[in-house]
């Protein structure tokens, strides 16, 4: 597992029914591209987050494939329409098989 991997998400705690809310996510990760070489000229192996998903009450909101050119600490900002209270579940998939998760609930008045 890459060092210092820590997911963070920002979701409004309240919304009105049918409102479009903005979600922000950030995960600290080196996103080593696999193209760089170390001091001795050896290739540094690729180590990136290759997939990111967000689900709301089990329904997929966004499903992203990440490629090696994405920079350190990938940041996503996207909108979702919420009709009812529930939980946003965020999942990041690492090249090495690690899965990082975070969740935030939202209350719809």
């Amino acid at each position: 597992m890459a060092d210092n991997v820590k997911p963070r998400v920002k979701v409004p705690s309240k919304a009105s029914a049918g409102e479009v809310v903005t979600l922000k996510t950030l995960i600290s990760h080196p996103m080593e591209s696999g193209q760089r070489k170390d001091k001795d000229g050896n290739l540094i192996p690729r180590s990136i987050i290759n997939r990111f998903t967000c689900e709301f009450n089990g329904a997929m909101v966004i499903d992203v494939t990440l490629e090696p050119s994405i920079s350190t600490n990938p940041y996503f900002e996207f909108d979702a329409k919420v009709d009812a209270s529930g939980d946003f579940k965020f999942t990041w998939y690492d090249d090495d098989g690690s899965v990082y998760e975070d969740a935030k609930s939202i209350e719809v008045a």
Partner: peptide
């Protein structure tokens, strides 16, 4: 602070 990239490093 969520958008400020410094904060990832500050947390470390």
């Amino acid at each position: 602070d969520f958008d400020n990239p410094n904060m990832v490093f500050a947390e470390q």
